[in-house]
């Protein structure tokens, strides 16, 4: 109860109700997440159930155009799959990959940043040098390289089934640098504070001090970076899937839907690519706006 009151009375909520952009974005993102979460319950059709697909229904236009079928609100694809259901399930996979890869980047980056900032010396030098080298390249390129290496390790043909984790690892490993740098910078400040000295005096071990005492004090900026990174991860996942090195058509994310739909663009069946594209853009844009708003609300200096 007390906590609820604190949330209701907070600056954050006040700032939220004052920014219509953030409210619209949050509604869109929340709605898409709900659709993704409850996809099996609310989708008109299970796009993975091959028995329910009928090639006779293939390439039906959206319901408001002539030739549209009331069962396929946004039309159907080349296999008679309902586009709307495919979007629900695709968003589920896209959001899943993005959340998992941001979590992975967060764990790696925060741990390395804490260790580098707390111990300093050679550990710090190595971690920060690695960060410098990786920062030389755009994240999408790093993700592509890790992806290619993972394919070579698994061997051709054995990637099937593990694409989800290959993606999570390649995106996660290409986003850790920013967390490591931020956390290191704050840890450098925190480690000289009295509470750390006190914890050391009562004999707490280094990992205990780092993870239970310092960590909560350096997490603020990390959450903002994580939100903005989530939008980036959604776009990176979609891009990798679009490039054909992400999720396969049998387990499509929004990016894969755009990739497969793209083949029908030339013959004029625009809805197969258009609606998944709109869903993807809405998801990325709304998460981006929330991230921007969060950054401004939590850190007025950055405005």
């Amino acid at each position: 109860m007390n906590r609820l009151r604190r949330i209701l009375g907070s600056d954050l909520l006040w700032s939220f109700t004052r920014s219509p952009g953030a409210m619209i974005a949050a509604t869109v993102a929340f709605g898409l997440c709900l659709c993704a979460l409850f996809a099996p319950l609310i989708a008109p059709q299970n796009p993975f159930d091959l028995a329910s697909l009928d090639l006779m229904d293939a390439r039906d236009p959206p319901v408001w155009l002539s030739g549209g079928d009331h069962r396929f609100l946004l039309g159907s694809d080349s296999q008679g799959r309902d586009i709307l259901s495919a979007i629900f399930f695709g968003a589920r996979i896209s959001i899943g990959v993005s959340l998992a890869s941001v979590a992975l980047a967060l764990v790696i980056g925060v741990s390395l940043g804490l260790v580098a900032g707390y111990f300093g010396g050679r550990v710090e030098a190595i971690v920060m040098r690695a960060a410098d080298v990786q920062l030389t390249f755009p994240a999408i390129l790093t993700a592509l390289l890790i992806n290619g290496a993972a394919r070579a390790v698994l061997g051709p043909g054995r990637v099937a089934g593990s694409e989800f984790w290959v993606l999570v690892i390649s995106i996660g490993l290409s986003f850790w640098v920013q967390y490591a740098r931020t956390v290191r910078a704050s840890t450098l400040v925190e480690r000289h504070k009295d509470y750390v000295a006190a914890a050391r005096l009562i004999g707490a071990s280094a990992p205990r001090i780092m993870f239970t005492h310092v960590l909560p004090n350096v997490l603020g900026p990390v959450l903002v970076i994580a939100t903005i990174n989530l939008a980036l991860a959604i776009i990176t996942e979609a891009t990798l899937s679009f490039l054909g090195v992400g999720l396969p058509p049998s387990q499509p994310s929004l990016g894969t839907l755009v990739r497969t739909g793209n083949d029908y663009l030339m013959s004029g069946e625009w809805w197969i690519v258009f609606f998944p594209g709109v869903a993807l853009a809405a998801l990325a844009l709304s998460v981006n706006i929330i991230g921007d708003w969060l950054r401004d609300a939590l850190n007025p200096r950055l405005r």
Partner: peptide
């Protein structure tokens, strides 16, 4: 802002269409 948030390939596909 929309341009920054949109994945490059969507812009390309839109132009092609």
């Amino acid at each position: 802002l929309i341009g920054v948030s949109l994945p490059t390939f969507l812009i390309g596909i839109l132009l092609i269409y």
